[in-house]
Structure formats: structure tokens, C-alpha cells
């Protein structure tokens, strides 16, 4: 299975990864703050990931790693 990892404490919750993902794998947390005080992105739908790396390409904070 493809695996997307969010480095939570690097994330600023900008949501560009959510916008870029063609399979709606990611979502911005609504309940949980990171160390910086942002609501970070989280993997809401891991099975749908196709490892296209669109999220990682657009992440301004290099907070996403992808394996397959």
C-alpha cells in the first residue's frame, strides 16, 4: 500500500496539499493543534493514495514524505 506521511510539526496547515490531491486522501485537522499552533494536514483516507506526490510537490514546508 502507498504511504503518505505528514511531518506534523513542520506543517502550517495551509491546505495546498488538500487542494492538490486528486484522490481526497488528505484533510486539515479540525480538532488537533501542532507544536506551532496550526491545525495540520492529516491522512484522512490512506487507502486512496496513488503515490503521485502532487501533495509533496506543492507543500511549501517540505512536510510530506511518500513511499510505495
Amino acid at each position: 500500500m502507498n504511504k503518505v506521511t505528514i511531518l506534523e510539526d513542520w506543517c502550517k496547515g495551509c491546505g495546498l496539499c488538500v487542494r492538490a490531491c486528486p484522490k481526497a486522501v488528505l484533510a486539515i485537522s479540525t480538532t488537533h493543534l501542532n507544536k506551532k499552533g496550526y491545525y495540520p494536514a492529516e491522512v484522512a483516507n490512506p487507502e486512496a493514495c496513488i503515490a503521485c506526490a502532487a501533495c509533496a510537490r506543492t507543500c511549501p514546508d517540505t512536510a510530506i514524505e511518500i513511499e510505495k
Binding site: K12, A53, T62
Partner: peptide
């Protein structure tokens, strides 16, 4: 296999830019 990982040429420090800023990209 790793599909995407931060390059070592970018130092291991968080960027100071605003959320959504293009500089980080």
C-alpha cells in the same frame, strides 16, 4: 521505495515563511 523525501541540499530546519507562501516551494 521512497517516492518523495526532502532533499539534503535543503537544511533540516523549518522555514519561517507564512502558510501557503511560494518561497518554500
Amino acid at each position: 521505495t521512497v517516492v518523495f523525501k526532502k532533499t539534503p541540499v535543503l537544511r533540516d530546519v523549518p522555514l519561517h515563511y507564512c502558510p501557503g507562501c511560494g518561497h518554500g516551494i
